[in-house]
Simulated assay, not measured.
Amino acid sequence: MLNPTRVKGLHHVAFAEGQGAELAETFQRTLGLPVTSVERVPGFNERMLDLGNCSLQGLEVTGEGVVKRSVDRRGPGLHHIAFEVDDIAATMSELRDHGIDFIDPEPRTGGGGHLIAFAYPKSFGGVLVEFVEVRSEF
């Protein structure tokens, strides 16, 4: 079992959508969720919407890539959930000891400059799970 002190909480819940960011716009307009950042990366735009204790992350398709493949395969909707952890390398090591397989062999830099790693959905009952180590210097 993962050391329970490693998981600090839910970091974000991500949803994928086609071009136009209609779902992100709907959350913003109807629920009053402010967009705190927008990052443009190859293949998608990432919008973070503030929920106070965690975020919603909108992944808008802008070209070829992993988000477009997800939307093409499953349609728009839930993409992944992300947990904030205190030490991503130690978390990955402990989880590997318990049979969790990672897409990312090592932590990498993701949105907001944070360290991230994705576990294969088969490791978590079909749910894509991301682990995030927040780096405050970014």
Rank of each mutant, 00 (worst) to 15 (best):
E94S: 08
F102T: 10
L56Q: 03
I116A: 00
P105A: 08
R108W: 00
V66H: 14
G20Q: 01
E39G: 03
T91C: 13
V38K: 14
L56E: 10
V38D: 00
L23Q: 11
L49A: 12
F44L: 06
A89Y: 12
D104Y: 03
G125Q: 10
E25A: 14
A117K: 12
V13C: 06
E130R: 05
L23I: 15
P42W: 02
M48H: 10
V85L: 07
F102V: 11
G111V: 14
P121S: 03
V67Q: 01
L33F: 13
F131L: 13
P105E: 15
E133I: 05
R29H: 11
G126R: 10
S55C: 14
E84S: 10
E60H: 12
V134H: 09
G43A: 03
H114Y: 07
V66N: 14
C54D: 08
V129F: 06
A16L: 02
L51V: 05
S93P: 07
G65N: 04
I116H: 04
E25M: 01
E94F: 02
H79Y: 13
G52F: 12
T91G: 01
E46P: 00
F102E: 07
G126Y: 12
F27W: 14
D97I: 02
L56N: 08
E39F: 05
E17Y: 01
D50F: 04
R40D: 15
S37Q: 09
V13Q: 05
D72V: 05
V41A: 09
V35Q: 07
D87R: 08
P42G: 03
L56I: 12
V132G: 00
V85S: 04
E46I: 15
H79P: 02
R29K: 15
R135F: 05
G77E: 07
L78Q: 06
L51A: 13
D97E: 14
E46V: 15
H79Q: 06
I88F: 06
R69N: 13
L95N: 01
H98F: 10
P121H: 00
F15T: 01
L128D: 10
Q57T: 05
G126C: 11
V127W: 08
L31K: 01
E130P: 13
P34G: 08
G43R: 07
A82G: 08
Q28P: 09
G43P: 11
F124Y: 14
P105R: 09
V127F: 11
S136V: 13
V134M: 09
G63L: 11
V66C: 10
D101E: 15
E39P: 00
I100M: 05
Q57W: 02
T36Q: 05
V61E: 11
T36I: 15
A24L: 05
E25Q: 14
G111R: 11
H114L: 04
S123F: 03
P107G: 03
P34W: 00
I100Q: 02
E133K: 01
H79R: 09
F83G: 01
V38S: 02
P34K: 10
G52R: 06
S136I: 01
R73L: 13
E64D: 15
G113Y: 07
D101N: 10
E137K: 04
T30E: 13
V134E: 12
